[in-house]
């Protein structure tokens, strides 16, 4: 008969395990659970930001939020920005990783240089781009006019859809190196023999990309897309510094709306409700995404 009773040694190991895991659990509670709970708690109050005085309003903030056109407009803007910039990041990222995976003579240098946009601080990057985009002195307009592509300077940040396109492009430029590094790392682990077998089986370069490379990249792409989607969805500084959400509210994504509610309109409770709603939207997308990618794996 098998005894279910724990031995002294097993009990000792169980205690030791609890003790070892305890610090992590405590830190997790302090930095994740507490802010999350307090954000949800705050969202149930009407709070004046400067004094942080408020009164209980229950779910009123959420009712107001769902009835407001601004929330839905910002959600739509947020989705356009996320999908737009993420697609370009993935496209450029994979393309550049494939180039850097080839035996080219400046490969080592290029691999280091490619990280530059990712390393550079967002403030600096945005300042540089704002100058490039400047409608009066910007080099972009100057070059395009010199090349005869345009007759009049283009307002890149002050009109639509230019502002959204510009924000998406700068976002793609800033974050595609992350995709390059992750994809490149995976590319280097794909065995050469798979490509050789495919060549013998009669596959050309395009077929080899779609039949070998892409399926092999699938797992890493799932992770990249998930991480970048989360990060892009809650991107604040790049958009805030580049357009401030304008023209009017054309590029105002949810994080910018949260900021506006909290610090311009001094509505901390409402801002918290927006933040919680944002989290809920992301959660729904992530659950759907993980389910979908998990299904294919089975």
């Amino acid at each position: 008969m098998i005894k279910n009773k724990q031995t002294k040694l097993e009990r000792h190991y169980a205690t030791l395990g609890m003790m070892l895991i305890a610090p992590t659990v405590l830190v997790f509670c302090a930095v994740i659970v507490y802010p999350l709970v307090s954000a949800i708690y705050l969202s149930l109050f009407d709070i004046y930001t400067p004094t942080l005085q408020g009164e209980w309003v229950g779910l009123d903030n959420y009712r107001e939020l769902l009835g407001k056109g601004e929330f839905w407009a910002s959600l739509r803007t947020n989705l356009i920005w996320t999908v737009g910039t993420l697609s370009l990041q993935i496209l450029f990222g994979i393309g550049m990783a494939l180039v850097l995976h080839q035996n080219i003579w400046f490969r080592s240098l290029a691999r280091s240089l490619i990280l530059f946009p990712y390393f550079i601080s967002t403030v600096v990057a945005v300042l540089v781009w704002r100058w490039l985009f400047n409608d009066l002195y910007g080099i972009l307009n100057h070059l395009m006019m010199a090349a005869g592509l345009i007759d009049m300077p283009v307002d890149y940040l002050g009109s639509m859809p230019n502002a959204m396109i510009s924000v998406i492009l700068v976002g793609a430029w800033k974050y595609f190196p992350f995709v390059v590094i992750a994809v490149l790392a995976r590319l280097q682990t794909i065995p050469d023999s798979l490509y050789e077998a495919a060549r013998i089986d009669g596959a050309g370069p395009v077929a080899r990309f779609f039949d070998i490379t892409l399926p092999q990249l699938r797992d890493v792409l799932v992770v990249i897309i998930m991480l970048r989607a989360i990060w892009d969805f809650k991107e604040f500084d790049l958009i805030f510094l580049l357009t401030g959400g304008g023209p009017v509210t054309s590029t105002q994504t949810l994080p910018l709306l949260v900021y506006k509610e909290a610090f311009s309109l001094n509505n901390m409770g409402m801002a918290a409700a927006y933040a919680v709603a944002m989290m809920a939207v992301m959660l729904v997308f992530m659950i759907l995404y993980i389910r979908k990618t998990g299904e294919k794996d089975a």
Partner: peptide, 20 residues
């Protein structure tokens, strides 16, 4: 001639089966 046009087939040491 590229490998695909040589009318050969090869079995690799690592088998090189397409994992997906």
């Amino acid at each position: 001639l590229p490998p695909g046009k040589r009318d050969i087939a090869m079995v690799f040491q690592s088998y090189a089966l397409y994992p997906h």
